[in-house]
Design a binder for these strands. Structure first.
Lengths: 171, 171
DNA sequence: TTGGAAAGTCAACAAGGCTGACATAAACTG
DNA sequence: CAGTTTATGTCAGCCTTGTTGACTTTCCAA
């Protein structure tokens, strides 16, 4: 059967112990428990408000890409337009998000955070970054690089494209 | 203010660039997109059945620790007993989980997977491990070590205890 | 023997997914 | 120009999975 790909696995015979079912189970549980921590802080802020995790996600990605369209958001978030619309409607009604009709294509709505929306985004991401920063600092840059490498490899190809497009590509 | 801890951050002045807000935002999005991939495969299997992610989680942890009590599960899963009970009830009714009254403490219920439950667990974790294995293999052992280090650092202390207790401790 | 922990149950509710059907405006195509 | 496709919004209804609150039963342990 020989060695297979060789490109990524320059270790081959050496130590594939990190691929045992037990190690994979550990990885699975690590994801589960870490994701709980990952969402805990913003959730705590939101539980006193009329918003939830879905609103957080929308606000995050609007902040990341101001002027993004509804369709873009749908692709990134992976929910139905009905689900997203329910969230966006409340955010627009409450004045956290502004929805501008497109200039080139008037069917499109371009989404922007208002001042108030930006403030909430900041509060939420501050909380989340705080934990991430502590984890990154404790783990060190090499561990962080590995963390990102594995997570990227775990994404669906379509989502990986979305993820990499942020810094990799456009202005 | 000098160098701080030194233990983990032997890099100090050198390159703290991995702690910029932009890098942290990347880490946050990596978690978001990767978690989507992480849950996608089991979800796909479950959508044809009468079960959801909550059932998967229960089945996973019962399989990991056969004979665990309801209270143990509650601590690990971090949901209310009413939520968990609804899930467990259907699993018991459908013959995937067996609930045995404790011998020492008859108030406790010890949970075990039946043959059928084990089969479903295997199908679900096979799917999940398949993706994790591909990601681990593509990333390599050093990246995997970093991945785990960062995730551990991101957990709430209580959950980290739970996580580490698996291989670290009891028989 | 009694207090309290563990477990279970009922009811009601909310968030946030989903599908299906339909409306409107704008853009595109032949 | 007519017809089709696209982008968006909306109504209605359903499901899963989380929540709180109230209450009961069992039974260990002081």
């Amino acid at each position: 059967m020989s060695e297979r790909g060789a490109a990524n696995t320059a270790f081959s015979g050496e130590s594939l112990l990190f691929l045992t079912d037990e190690q994979l189970r550990r990885g699975i549980e690590a994801m589960f428990f870490a994701y709980r921590g990952f969402t805990a802080d913003p959730d705590k802020i939101l539980q006193n408000q009329a918003y939830g995790r879905a609103h957080h996600r929308a606000i995050h990605f609007i902040n990341r890409s101001p002027g993004t369209t509804v369709n873009n958001l749908l692709a990134i978030l992976g929910v139905t337009k009905q689900s997203l619309n329910r969230v966006l409607r409340t955010l627009v009604e409450d004045g956290l998000v502004e929805s501008r009709v497109g200039t080139r294509d008037k069917r499109e709505r371009h989404l922007y955070l208002t001042e108030e929306g930006t403030a909430l985004e900041r509060a939420l991401s501050d909380a989340q970054r705080h934990r991430m920063r502590a984890a990154f600092r404790a783990a060190g840059p090499e561990a962080v690089a590995g963390f990102r490498t594995v997570l990227e490899a775990m994404m669906d190809p379509e989502l990986r494209r979305q993820y990499l497009a942020t810094t990799g590509g456009e202005p």
